[in-house]
C-alpha cells in the first residue's frame, strides 16, 4: 500500500471541519469495537455542545452496557437503578423545569424491567427526552434475550432462537408510546452509516429543542448493533441489522410535535 504523505498545507488548525466534541471525557469508551453506543453518546454530546447547554443539562444513565455513560459524558449525570431512569428523570425535571433532562437507556432497561416507568413518564407527558438504544439483546450481562429480541434470533437465553409461542413477540415500545398523548415527538433512528448518523443527530437536536416548548416527552429510539452479543464483526452486524432489525423496527419519525 503506497506510503501516504500528509500535506501540511491542509493540516492547519483553521482547516479543521470535524473533531471530537469536548463534552466526551478523555476516558476510552468501554463499548465493543463498532458498537452504536459510542456513536449515540457522541451525537448527544455534540448537540449539547452546539446548543451551549452543558450547564443546563442533567442526564440519567441506566444499568446495562451504558451504565458507565457517566464516565464518558462530561455533564452532571445520575446513574439510575435498572429500569428506573424515567422515574429519576421525572423528579429532576419537575424540580428543575428549566433544565434539559434526558435518560439514556438500553432495551433491557427500558422495555423489560422499566416498562412501567417508561409508559408512565410518557403518559404524564414529562417535558424530557428519552434516548432508547435498541440492539435486541442484553449486552452487558453477556447476550441474553431481551423483549426486543427478534423471532428466531439466538441469544444465551434463547439458544435455539426466540420461540414466539413460549417467549412472546418482540415489544415495539416506540410505536406503543407514540399512542400516548403525553408524547410530543417519537422517532426511530440508526447510527450505522454517515447519513443515518446525521439524521439521528437532527432528531437528537429536535428532542432537546422540544423541551423548551413544554408540550410533552420526546422519545428517540436508536436501533443499534451488538457485535459480541450477535457474534459478528461490526460490519457484518450492521448489515444483519439492516436486513433483520429494520424490517421489524422501521427507521423514521412516527410522531412529530403532535401531542394527540
Amino acid at each position: 500500500m503506497a506510503e501516504f504523505k500528509t500535506n501540511p498545507e491542509i493540516l492547519q488548525p483553521e482547516n479543521v471541519v470535524y473533531k471530537r466534541t469536548e463534552l466526551l471525557t478523555d476516558k476510552a469508551l468501554s463499548y465493543c469495537p463498532g458498537c452504536g453506543h459510542g456513536t449515540a453518546h457522541r451525537i448527544i454530546m455534540e448537540v449539547i455542545e452546539e446548543m451551549g447547554i452543558q450547564a443546563e443539562t442533567i442526564g440519567v444513565a441506566p444499568v446495562g452496557c451504558s451504565v458507565l455513560a457517566y464516565e464518558f459524558m462530561d455533564i452532571d449525570i445520575q446513574q439510575a437503578a435498572h429500569g428506573r431512569a424515567p422515574a429519576v428523570a421525572t423528579a429532576i425535571k419537575r424540580l428543575f423545569p428549566d433544565k434539559f433532562v434526558f435518560t439514556y437507556q438500553g432495551d433491557g432497561d427500558l422495555a423489560a424491567i422499566g416498562t412501567a416507568e417508561t409508559i408512565h413518564a410518557c403518559n404524564r407527558g414529562e417535558n424530557m427526552t428519552i434516548f432508547f438504544i435498541n440492539n435486541g439483546i442484553y449486552g452487558m450481562t453477556g447476550g441474553q434475550m431481551a423483549p426486543t429480541t427478534l423471532p428466531g434470533m439466538k441469544s444465551s437465553t434463547s439458544p435455539y432462537g426466540r420461540d414466539v409461542k413460549t417467549m412472546g413477540n418482540p415489544l415495539k415500545m416506540t410505536e406503543l408510546v407514540a399512542t400516548l398523548p403525553g408524547t410530543l415527538y417519537v422517532t426511530r433512528q440508526a447510527v450505522h452509516t454517515a447519513s443515518a448518523v446525521r439524521k439521528a443527530k437532527r432528531a437528537v437536536r429536535k428532542a432537546f429543542e422540544n423541551q423548551k416548548l413544554n408540550k410533552g416527552l420526546s422519545f428517540v429510539e436508536i436501533v443499534s448493533n451488538c457485535n459480541s452479543g450477535w457474534k459478528m464483526n461490526p460490519l457484518q452486524s450492521n448489515e444483519w441489522m439492516v436486513e433483520n432489525m429494520f424490517p421489524f423496527y422501521p427507521i423514521g419519525d412516527i410522531k412529530v410535535n403532535d401531542d394527540k
Binding site: 479543521v16 466526551l24 453506543h37 456513536t39 457522541r42 454517515a194
Partner: peptide, 19 residues
C-alpha cells in the same frame, strides 16, 4: 474532507481537515 468517516466513528477517533 466530507467527514463521513468521523461522523460514523463510534469512538470519535477521527479529526477531519478540509481546504
Amino acid at each position: 474532507g466530507c467527514t463521513n468517516c468521523a461522523v460514523v466513528c463510534p469512538d470519535g477517533a477521527i479529526t477531519v481537515y478540509r481546504k
